[in-house]
Design a protein around this nucleic acid. Structure first.
Length: 466
DNA sequence: TGAAATGTTGGGGCG
DNA sequence: ACGCCCCAACATTTC
């Protein structure tokens, strides 16, 4: 009887798991192990919300493994040391894992592979970052040609079903899965593979067909909200892409098809940013574009604190940050508005925002998060031009027309009428009293004048790009 | 996956 | 009838 270790990292699922499938081809006995890596647990990029979500997800995975006759082995420590011990305990001949393209993971896996028979298997993205390359063999740095090539690659095929049973190895010790910290807020995202699949089906059965029109509306549930599940692999990229392609084929109108194709495009953005981080790992430390590394960012601790807390005085920005702080998730349109406000209105380094999002988001992914921030800051690949400055009032009027999103997350503004919901400081004093929203006491006035901020950032970017 | 500034057009009021 | 002005609506340019 051959034994293999299934080293679980960002693939907390049994369905469509290529690493698990490969391991089962190779061995009869599978040891599913998750390693609590102190370096990751204490990383600046890790926050309590995502950790709590991870622990819940591990618990769900363990339940599912037990139904197959197996169980999750949880260990803590340096991955190489843990795996060496586990190989000794089990007599396993190889370790299978889903390949992770982020810098820390590559360094960690490189070290493990020097000492152990580690086999890395695709799955984090549909296509390996080395697949869509330009004709001269260099990586793409612009999304549109990347996506064209990505779409022209041979189809990834249908997702694999989960195994029916797994032979487990008895008598292995395992840590208890940690309870989530008591102070963690109740998350609207239930952990687990079943929940991920349920949400995927619900989305691709109906809302996907209106996605193109509805995805920007912060007051509606027009997006899939699947990112937390993709982040930890309760849903595979291939399952998501497959469902999008099926929906596109089933679509009965061109606008329905456009919805499915637009969502597929968002999944391709995820693959694009994974490839960017893989080929240009320095983007973790600095701007992708060298000419934008000298922007005169402001040292503004109180502005940064107000932004984090959702107390900038701009309702849409504050709603966005409070949605993040409360739920661990933020609407994508709100991410752009909030990021534009930090970088362009407050002129605070995008890396501050990147860090806070990583600490707060359940879906915080080093590649997509960095790509998104650099896009907004204009420092990245395929980036927004420096002069593209979001006006938080206009964005509110366009994408939260009745102010429902704002009122949901900023209760101080609950009674403010539509006319003033995105610029409450313009309310006459009498109306401020009536609506229990007196500016500077019940709700802050704008911490910065947008018009002036816009002029300042245009100047700063011109000087910083010289 | 902006927004503001500037330019152009055309209808209507009015002398 | 005609020219003039105003200005909304739309288009183009610029940041």
């Amino acid at each position: 009887m051959k034994t293999a270790i299934w080293w679980i990292r960002r693939d907390l699922r049994l369905g469509d798991n290529q690493a698990l499938t490969e391991a089962m081809h190779e061995a009869e006995v599978i040891v599913p192990v998750f390693i609590l890596d102190p370096k990751l647990l204490s990383s600046d990029y890790t926050g309590p919300a995502r950790l709590a979500f991870l622990f819940e997800s591990l618990r769900e995975l363990d339940v599912n493994l037990k139904q197959l006759g197996s169980r999750l082995i949880l260990r803590r420590g340096d991955p190489l040391e843990v795996l060496i011990n586990l190989l000794r305990e089990t007599g396993a001949e190889s370790v299978f894992a889903e390949e992770d393209y982020s810098p820390y993971a590559r360094q960690r896996d490189g070290k493990v592979a020097l000492s152990l028979p580690l086999k890395l298997v695709p799955g984090l993205t549909v296509f390996h970052p080395d697949m869509p390359l330009k004709a001269d063999g260099s990586p793409y740095t612009v999304f549109t040609p990347f996506s064209r090539t990505w779409r022209s690659l041979p189809a990834s095929g249908s997702p694999h079903p989960a195994p029916k049973q797994l032979s487990a190895m008895p008598a292995l010790t395992s840590l208890e899965i940690p309870e989530k910290p008591s102070h963690t807020a109740e998350s609207p995202f239930k952990a687990g593979e079943e929940e991920a699949q349920r949400r995927l089906s619900a989305f691709t059965d109906s809302a996907i067909f209106d996605y193109s029109d509805m995805r920007n509306r912060m007051d509606l549930e027009g997006t899939s909200q699947l990112s937390p599940y993709l982040r930890l692999g309760m849903l595979s990229a291939r399952q998501a892409v497959w469902a999008a392609q099926q929906a596109s084929q089933l679509a009965s109108t061109t606008s329905a098809q456009k919805g499915a194709e637009t969502w597929l495009n968002e999944l391709i953005w995820r693959e694009f940013y994974a490839a960017i981080l893989y080929h240009f790992p320095y983007v973790r430390q600095e701007a992708f574009r060298a000419e934008l590394r000298n922007i005169p960012w402001q040292n503004d601790p109180s502005g940064l604190a107000a932004w984090k807390a959702g107390l900038t005085g701009y309702p849409v920005v504050d709603a966005a940050m409070r949605q993040l702080n409360t739920t661990g998730w933020m609407h994508n349109r709100a991410r752009m508005i909030s990021a534009s406000f930090l970088t362009k209105d407050l002129l605070i380094n995008w890396q501050e925002g990147e860090l806070y999002f990583m600490q707060s988001l359940l879906d915080g992914d080093p590649a997509s998060n960095n790509g998104g921030w650099q896009w907004t800051a204009g420092t990245g690949t395929d980036a927004a031009p420096y002069f593209r400055v979001f006006n938080p009032i206009l964005q509110g009027l366009k994408f939260d027309p009745q102010g429902d999103y704002v009122r949901r997350w900023v209760p101080e503004l609950a009674l403010v009428p539509n006319k003033y919901i995105h610029s409450p400081w313009e309310m006459p004093v009498e109306l401020q009293k009536q609506t229990k929203c007196q500016i500077d006491s019940d709700y802050p006035g704008p911490i910065i004048d947008h018009k002036l901020a816009r002029e300042r950032v245009l100047l700063a970017y011109r000087s910083g790009s010289g």
